[in-house]
Design a binder for these strands. Structure first.
Lengths: 223, 223, 223, 223
DNA sequence: TATGAATGAGAGTTCATTCAT
DNA sequence: CATGAATGAACTCTCATTCAT
């Protein structure tokens, strides 16, 4: 099996969203502040100070604190979803695509741990969290996108059949997420860890997320 | 493969440990209220009203709102960890043990969806969340417990070697958690769903969490 | 002038007020706790703990926290007023009587600094303080008692005439009080200071309170 | 005895130093409210209402209720200390200076009884009162300033030697304070009293504070 | 007498949001 | 666009007081 993974990753973090410079400064500051103090633990004033803009300007660009978080979330997930799309349209099998998705997530953590921190730990804290609103829709969209890729793989005979693609997608994303969480909170290696450590963990996460823990060739499952 | 899973499960929800009756009422009410309105979205008054006690009594038993959440968390996870221990000491292979753990998580959701909701969605939102404090320690303990079981399975030759047990444990718990999340937020079936739906999902979650999505007998991994 | 002061002092601190033992324990504890943490800075629970009695017992003996403070105040001032009476009825001139009063105040501070602390710093903090209620009446009574002694001295030709006895009384008590305050807060010597230091300060306080700062034999006043 | 006292007084109440208009309004309102209901007996809402500003604005300018009281205290004593400095640098003997200080205190009471009420009755009741913090330092500074003037008088031979200047200073301020207290609580004349009453009391306070109650020409002291 | 769990009004503080400039 | 003073509702926590035992 070829080791040419990078060719399907295509991360290319767009280093800006739309809008004027100060708006981006606020968004960028929000990521850092949310990551450091948490959504509920920070004040609009903190974001404004971090962005180097006046208090009131935050409200010029965002209707409310919640909308600010949603914007952060939407922007980050847009990147993630965009990456998934790029990967899907790239070469490789469905399994390779899914692996590339995991790999991309781990890479982003290496590059921008704050953003991952916010996505993983803070986003569900918005007043209605994943229960309703744009955040939930975005989350569901990502899940279905992965599930769709699983289905394609099943149809192509590359992936095991008989598993609900949605369950499989949740398992893959969940594996990725909890491993990221473990890194975020310091149970696994920190983002500042040595390159090879991160690389090794990444490889294992991909391996387990897709291949499970059971030995190859073993018949049924454990349950 | 035999279908005698229940023999290793041994859930036995203890009717909530120590403390006087009113204390337990408050704890129980907190689970419901946190589940319904979220930790940040509810007031102590809501908990007191739900418990049918006076406002001040909450502060008679718990130092602060945060401590109340931590107590809920500790109590719920104690149940989960206790179940893991019981499962480990029961009969069956490591793989069966891990499967039983997943199964137990899904069962609890069926029995007490509010508790799962709080554990999954609310706990990480305490002021310091998983970053520090007893909550983080409890989380890490559970993770290491699972990892230990994985290691035992690897040593016994029942599970694939070459995978960091901690990574594998995070993958298993993450699969479980995100599938539960998907159910909690309604993307997958609700807890009120038909028995057979839940049973089917449970089986699949276990299957994917442990066995991955790659077909049996296939050699390496996808990445 | 004779140096036989002690003969007119007759302090004799009654080491108990009426009521059962536990009541006295509470009163005694209140003095210590009020002295250490202040009336508004302490809770009934603190007093109960210090007294070694149950929470509710405080309310068995005292109608309210305020009544507890008033009881402390009344008891302490009763001692002070009783001493003034004893001094008045003892031998010596009016000036000697007044000096003995000051001396008594300083002596009590040496013996029971906590009690003085409460009288000086805490009593006026009761909800209505010196503005109304029994506390104010007690304070006024003491002031008038001193003023009366001044008047007697003036009539006997021992003290300067032409000064309102009430003003003079306030001046004497004020001198005493602010010197005690300075000691209480540590600007002057602490109660733990060497005997001779306290003795010297006491002598000077008496001297200045009664004799002023102007040199003897000088005609009018400075103003 | 010359009646030219006013030349050394130089009160000149600065119309309350720095800060925007609303800040001063809050400070001014705090003086009135603290004077009327006491520090512990009033709520921030009372101050805000009295100042005609919104609740939250109090916290925009002052970190806490306690800081508000400290600010009131600091501002009032700044005026007092400034007056003492002005008096010291003005013409006249040390005795005249001390008399002018007493006179100034009495004058302020006539002009702004509320401020005096707060200084006398409320300030020591802040959580740590005179025991620690800026309040205690300010108090000590004033005391030492007076003591210094006493020392100068002693060195110039205008005042009796052999008295600790600090004790003498405490006696003078104490005389002043307790006479003010007696006026504040209504035992002596009210600030609304006739001019001549206040003038007479003022004269007597000065006379007693500096000259004591012993007759002129009498040798030793009473104690 | 004695206990301490139970009560609930009250107040300090925070901070998202608005608005005049 | 930009600013930051001004607003006030909301909420946590405290603690004096009551009461059943």
């Amino acid at each position: 099996m070829p080791r040419r993974r990078r060719q399907v990753v295509a991360p290319r973090l767009p280093d800006e969203a739309g809008g004027p410079e100060k708006r981006r400064a606020i968004l960028h500051a929000a990521v850092r502040v949310f990551a450091r103090k948490g959504y509920h633990g920070c004040r609009i004033a903190d974001v404004a100070r971090q962005a180097g803009v006046a208090y009131g300007l935050v409200y010029h660009y965002f209707r409310s604190k919640e909308e600010l978080l949603e914007s952060v979330f939407a922007e980050q997930w847009a990147i993630f979803i965009q990456a998934i799309h790029a990967i899907r349209e790239g070469p490789g099998s469905a399994a390779e695509h899914l692996a590339a998705v995991c790999r991309f997530g781990m890479d982003v953590f290496r590059t921008a741990p704050d953003a991952v921190r916010v996505l993983i730990l803070e986003v569900p804290r918005t007043p209605d969290g994943l229960r309703a609103g744009g955040t939930r829709r975005t989350f569901e969209a990502a899940l279905r996108l992965i599930a769709d890729e699983v289905r394609r793989g099943q149809e192509a005979g590359e992936l095991r059949r008989g598993v609900d693609p949605l369950v499989a997608a949740a398992a893959i994303l969940g594996s990725l997420e909890l491993n990221l969480t473990a890194m975020v909170v310091g149970i696994l290696a920190q983002p500042a860890a040595a390159e090879e450590d991160l690389e090794r963990i990444t490889r294992q996460v991909v391996e387990v997320a897709l291949g499970g823990v059971l030995p190859r060739g073993r018949g049924g499952t454990a349950g």
